[in-house]
Design a binder for these strands. Structure first.
Lengths: 214, 214
DNA sequence: CGGAAAGTTGACGGAGCGTCACCGCATACT
DNA sequence: AGTATGCGGTGACGCTCCGTCAACTTTCCG
């Protein structure tokens, strides 16, 4: 007995195992293809071809390339969301709230560069941003954290929705610019954003020679 | 003579006239279809079908739906760019520079709502932003205007590239939020952004009840 | 008026799409 | 172990969209 243990248990079953394995195979291949061709140029067939599976099998797991992409994005969002939330929940000051958010985000983006680039980049001039359920939840969590901070008296009472949008806009746009630089520096990028949100343009770090790059 | 004036001049020629007319027909149809289906779901065939022209004719004018979309975007960009530039060139203070930029932008977006929405919205959760040559030129113009303002002593010496990115990020993200509201108000939205850039979070307009909408 | 050039047409081969009847293998039951 | 059951992988199929191009129509101009 127990020679090659085809345990029929609900989790050790062959069915279950190949199911997660197939899903993983597809996601892995998709990550590769998206990075290679960009989101826009990628076809479902490209992903399938990068896989030993048949086309029908793909559709057992995902409805479209959008859904695959979404699954990949959600994975990233799920990794960073708790970090951001904890950072902000701990914050006793505006400084800690803002700087913690930006620093965590830019550091994550740099580490997760590949996924972030695939997310924003596309063929040529078309940029794509997919706001998956997890990402939208992240935005709403930010808004709630702002509202909580207002409640705690850390922030003045203001339009939390607009502030959330402003933070998101700056975070994504600066992240992209940061990645274009020769030596991306999440700390100094976060410092820039933090100074802006704390004191406005006049509080921005002074520099003698603006960091000029195309 | 001069019954239906088939003037053969280089500009009154029938050839020339139908050329601009066809192009216009396609652009008009495309605007309609993009607004109807969203950018992602639209196919070249959809645009052709919304037109009395044959498929081959379409390709005499545009290579792809991307190119049509780009032409539409460029049109908007060409309308707003000079306004923004003049506003900023006139600015003698940081206030005027920032507030002029945001106010002009949000007012334009509201008026041009349809085009902007087609630009950002897409099927469900996928957002598309196409940075056409004209739009990129607009970003670079903003950076140059910032650098010029630094030169004039209006701005302190800072990372103009990052500031440009921050302004762009806030402008686009707030514009989208603004359009989601029941009664979009470009002035108060611009006031919010301006206060943020002038004095940071603590300078933001106070409100008793945050404007909560999903 | 007539020849040349420019522009339009739509049918065509090629590719991606999503489906579904088929079938092999893991699972469940005796 | 042997057998029945049905899950899920397979890939060919019908469909749509793609971009092209040879044939045709219209405009231009001498």
């Amino acid at each position: 007995m127990d020679t090659q243990t085809p345990i029929s248990g609900p989790h050790g079953g062959k069915r279950e195992r190949t199911k997660v394995q197939n899903r993983d195979t597809i996601l892995h291949a998709a990550r590769h293809v998206f990075a290679e061709l960009g989101y826009g140029a990628t076809t479902v067939r490209d992903i399938i071809r990068a896989t030993p599976l048949a086309s029908g099998t793909f559709y057992n797991y995902f409805k479209s390339k959008e859904e695959v992409f979404q699954a990949i994005q959600d994975e990233s969002a799920l990794r960073i969301r708790p970090r951001l939330h904890e950072e902000r929940a701990r914050a006793e000051t505006v400084e800690a709230f803002i700087s913690g958010t930006f620093r965590t985000f830019f550091e994550f983006v740099l580490a997760d560069q590949k996924s972030f680039h695939a997310m924003r980049r596309n063929t040529d001039i078309l940029r794509v941003r997919m706001d998956t359920p997890e990402i939208i939840a992240g935005f709403e969590e930010l808004r709630e954290d702002i509202e909580a901070a207002i409640g705690k008296g850390v922030f003045p009472a203001m339009d939390a929705d607009y502030l959330m949008a402003a933070i998101v806009g700056v975070a994504f746009e600066l992240a992209e610019r940061m990645l274009l630089r020769d030596d991306p520096n999440p700390v100094s990028t976060a410092d820039f954003a933090t100074a802006l949100f704390l004191g406005g343009v006049r509080a921005l770090p002074r520099i003698s020679q603006p960091d000029k790059r195309c």
